[in-house]
Computed example of a mutant assay.
Amino acid sequence: MATGHTDPQRRERILAATLDHIADEGVAGVSHRRIAGRAGVPLGSMTYHFAGIDDLLHEAFRRFADRIVTVFEHHLGPTRTPAEAREAVTDLVHALSEGSRRDLILAHELYTLAARRPEYRELTQNWMHRSRRLLERHFDADTARQLDALIEGLALHRSLDTAPQSRDLTLQAVTRVTSTA
């Protein structure tokens, strides 16, 4: 195994291993030793790259949130009209709910951590802010806020339901939230 400066991907491997570990065992199981073993790096690399467990968790979850915002951008970026945005949001809900269980677990581990520890709320607040900005390209700020919550709720329900709702029903819900009075 390469060491120090000859291993430029070490930090990235540590972050990936952290997210994999959280998805498999939860935040409570994170330790320097476990993550180093999973990443295949010397234990000393952990403190070289991260000030502590909180620094590691914060960075790993920031990267996870960035990736989810990229999924939002992928779906909403090409839309030009509110009707196209409604279709894109519907597709987004289904992509999130039918996607990897890993992402579902990571999102809820982050939510739980943020609910317990205020210093992680900044991550979730930033994630919500960025998602809402994408929605505000087509909808007013209040509607974007409601729609963002609807996306998360519908994705969660669809992912856990043994008979998830259809795309048509999802589109109906999105249309109701985004219709102007």
Results as ranks from 00 to 15, higher is better:
Val71Asn: 02
Glu122Tyr: 03
Glu84Ala: 10
Gly99Gln: 04
Ala114Gly: 03
Ala51Trp: 01
Thr70Pro: 06
Met1Ser: 15
Arg176Tyr: 15
Ala107Tyr: 14
Arg33Ser: 07
Asp91Tyr: 02
Ala51Phe: 03
Leu154Tyr: 12
Val30Tyr: 01
Ala88Gly: 03
Ser159Lys: 00
Thr124Pro: 02
Arg63Thr: 11
Gly40Arg: 09
Arg13Thr: 12
Pro42Met: 08
Arg63Tyr: 09
Asp54Gln: 08
Asp161Val: 00
Trp127Asp: 01
Phe50Met: 04
His157Phe: 13
Thr81Phe: 11
Asp142Phe: 05
Asp66Gln: 15
Glu73Ala: 15
Ala88Tyr: 06
Glu84Cys: 01
His58Thr: 10
Leu76Glu: 01
Pro82Ser: 07
Ala88Cys: 06
Thr112Leu: 08
Arg121Phe: 00
Met128Asn: 09
Ile22Asn: 00
His94Leu: 14
Asp103Arg: 07
Ala144Arg: 10
Arg145Gln: 10
Thr70Met: 12
Thr124Ile: 07
Ala181Ser: 08
Ala88Thr: 06
Gln146Thr: 09
Leu169Tyr: 13
Leu147Ala: 11
Ala16Ser: 14
Glu136Asn: 04
His32Lys: 05
Leu150Ala: 15
Asn126His: 03
Asp148Ala: 15
Arg117Ile: 01
Gly4Lys: 11
Tyr120Met: 01
Leu43Lys: 12
Thr180Lys: 12
Ser179Lys: 11
Phe139Pro: 13
Gln125Trp: 06
Glu59Gln: 14
Val93Pro: 00
Thr47Glu: 02
Arg38Phe: 07
Ser100Val: 01
Thr162Trp: 04
Leu56Asn: 02
Glu122Asn: 02
Gly99Glu: 05
His21Trp: 15
Val41Gly: 12
Ile22Phe: 01
Gly44His: 12
Val69Arg: 14
Gln172Met: 08
Arg33Cys: 00
Asp55Cys: 01
Pro42Ser: 12
Gln165Lys: 11
Thr112Lys: 02
Ser159Pro: 02
Ala115Glu: 03
His138Glu: 07
Ala115Leu: 07
His75Pro: 06
Val174Leu: 11
Leu160Cys: 04
Thr170Met: 08
Ala115Asp: 05
Ala16Met: 10
His138Pro: 07
Leu92Cys: 07
Gly4Trp: 11
Leu113Cys: 05
Ile68Tyr: 05
Ala2Lys: 14
Thr170Cys: 13
Ala95Glu: 11
Asp54Phe: 05
His129Pro: 00
Thr70Gly: 15
Arg67Glu: 15
Ala163Trp: 03
Gln146Gly: 14
Ala163Pro: 00
Thr124Trp: 05
Pro78Met: 13
Asp7Ser: 13
Ala23Asn: 09
Arg63Val: 10
Ile105Gln: 06
Leu57Ile: 00
His32Cys: 00
Asp20Met: 06
Thr178Tyr: 13
Phe72Asp: 14
His129Leu: 12
Val71Arg: 11
Arg33Asn: 03
